[in-house]
Design a protein around this nucleic acid. Structure first.
Lengths: 177, 177
DNA sequence: CTTGAATAGATTAAGCCTAAAGTATTGTAG
DNA sequence: CTACAATACTTTAGGCTTAATCTATTCAAG
C-alpha cells in the first residue's frame, strides 16, 4: 500500500484514505462537504464503470451512453436530439458518432424533409453489441450499489431528485439571464 | 433484439426535459435509475461550477481543485500526494501544475532528502487568488444545494457515505485481484 | 559496492469535452 | 424573389484525463 515518509503525523492518516472530501476541515460548510462527497461518489462509480467497460468490452463510457440512448429509439435520433439527451455539445456527439460509424455500430441516415439534419441509429451489429454490454453493465451497477437497502435506495433517489430540480432551476435561471 | 416499445406518446415529454435519466423505462432496474440520477446530479452541479469558475475567474475546476488541496498544506505536497488526493494520475497533475507554475500561482520546490521528488505549494499570489475564488465557490455551492433542508442534507450525506464505502470495497477488491 | 527492483515524475498518444467559428439549409419578412 | 435570421451539423483550438512508457533516483539484497 501507500507509504508516506511522514512529514507531519496527521498527514499519514489523511493520505491513507485519500480523496477529495474525507479530509475536509471541520470548519468547512456542510454544503461544501456534501458536494465533495457527491463528487467523490460519482467519480468512484464512474471510474469503476469506465474500467470495466474498457477491460471487458474495449469500449468507453461515452460510447456506451450514446448507444444506450439510441437503443431506446429504433427509428434513430437526430444529432441535435442526441446531444440534448446526453447533455453534451454537438461537436462532441459528432466525434463519438464518427467513431461508432467507423466501427459499423451506428449509421447516419438522411432525415427526410430536412437536408440539414441527420438521423443516427444503431446498426444490427451495434444493437447486438450493446445488448451484451447492457446486461453486464446493469449487473455491475446493481453490485456496486448493493450496499444500500431498498428503502435507502428510494430515499437517496428522492433526495437526489430534489437536488436535481433545484439545480435545474438555478442553472436555467442564470443561463437565461 | 430490438425490444424497445415503439414510439410512445410520452416520448415527446421525455425529450422536452432531456437528460440521461428522466426517461429511463419503467422496467429498468432501480439501481440503474439511481445511478443515472446520481450521474445527472453531479454533472449538473459540476457544469454549473465549471461555468461560474470560467466566467468569473477565468479558471477551471481541476485547477481550482488542485489549489484547494494545496491551500490546506502550507508546507506543500509532493506530486505523488497531490495525485492521490485528487484521485487522478500523476501525468495529469504534471500538466495542471505546469500551467499553474506558468501563471505563478504555485511553485515546485526540491524535496530535501529525495532528489526524485518535488514539493508543490501555493505562491503568495496563488494563495490570495485562491482565497477570493474559494469564498465565491462556497457561496455557489450553498446556493445550489439550498433546496434541501438541514435534515435532508444530513441524510443525503449519510447515504452517500454508505455508497462510497461500499464502492471502495468493491473497486479495491477488483483492483487487488 | 553492485545489481536489480521499486518509486517519483515526466512524456506520449489517444479519447473526451467545450466554446467559438464555419458551412449548408430552412424559414420568414418584405 | 431577396435578404436575413435561425437551425443542424461540423470543424478547430485548447484543456482534461488516462494508460503506457520513459528517465532518474532510491532502496534492498547479496
Amino acid at each position: 500500500m501507500l507509504r508516506v515518509t511522514a512529514i507531519d503525523p496527521s498527514d499519514e492518516a489523511r493520505v491513507r484514505r485519500a480523496d477529495r472530501e474525507t479530509s475536509a476541515r471541520a470548519g468547512d460548510h456542510r454544503a461544501l462537504r456534501l458536494w465533495l462527497r457527491l463528487l467523490t461518489c460519482t467519480q468512484l462509480l464512474e471510474r469503476h464503470m469506465r474500467n470495466l467497460l474498457r477491460l471487458r468490452f474495449g469500449t468507453t463510457l461515452p460510447r456506451f451512453d450514446l448507444m444506450s440512448r439510441l437503443e431506446r429509439y429504433p427509428e434513430g435520433l437526430k444529432m441535435k436530439e442526441l446531444s440534448h439527451h446526453l447533455m453534451v455539445t454537438g461537436g462532441n456527439v459528432t466525434g463519438i458518432v464518427d467513431q461508432l460509424v467507423r466501427e459499423r455500430l451506428v449509421e447516419r441516415l438522411p432525415e427526410p424533409g430536412d437536408r440539414r439534419a441527420l438521423r443516427v441509429r444503431l446498426t444490427r451489429a451495434g444493437d447486438e453489441a450493446f445488448g451484451k454490454m447492457a446486461r453486464a453493465h446493469e449487473e455491475w451497477i446493481v453490485s456496486v450499489l448493493s450496499g444500500l437497502s431498498r428503502k435507502e435506495h428510494a430515499e437517496l433517489f428522492r433526495l437526489l431528485a430534489k437536488v436535481k430540480s433545484h439545480a435545474l432551476e438555478i442553472t436555467e435561471r442564470k443561463d437565461g439571464a
